[in-house]
Amino acid sequence: MKEPVRIQEENFSVEEEVEAIKRTSKRIGAVVTFLGVARDFSKGHTIEALEFEQYEQMALKALRKLREDTLERFDIIDVRIVHRVARIPAGENIVLIVVASEHRKEAFSACSWCIDTLKKTVPLWKKEITPEGESWVEPHP
């Protein structure tokens, strides 16, 4: 089975990750996913692609800590986090968070907290590639 926390250039399969988490326990009654996708339009500009840079030595460690913190903070069974880097054409997947729990409420809360915290704590930076040129993206709360 693939690692539950990964940073990779290639695309990922949402179905594969959901199946992987379902296999971890028969107690699972709810699976909640957050899928971040590259939009083709932002603030009046056409976006051809996004490009993600990472601080490689820190980013994976930060994601693993995020998984541990999410497991500790919420009454859930498991969580998987996959984030892509390098060039991501508009329309493709960026990030996936999959949370499994006995009941849906905790899974929704954990998934929401996990993506919010990822944005604040993982050293990744996003650049928009437009027909007019490239620009780094200011963080969104």
């Binding site: 990822l118 944005k119 996003k126």
Partner: peptide, 8 residues
């Protein structure tokens, strides 16, 4: 030295 993160 890093600008604010913008992953996700």
């Amino acid at each position: 030295i890093m600008p604010p993160f913008s992953g996700g």
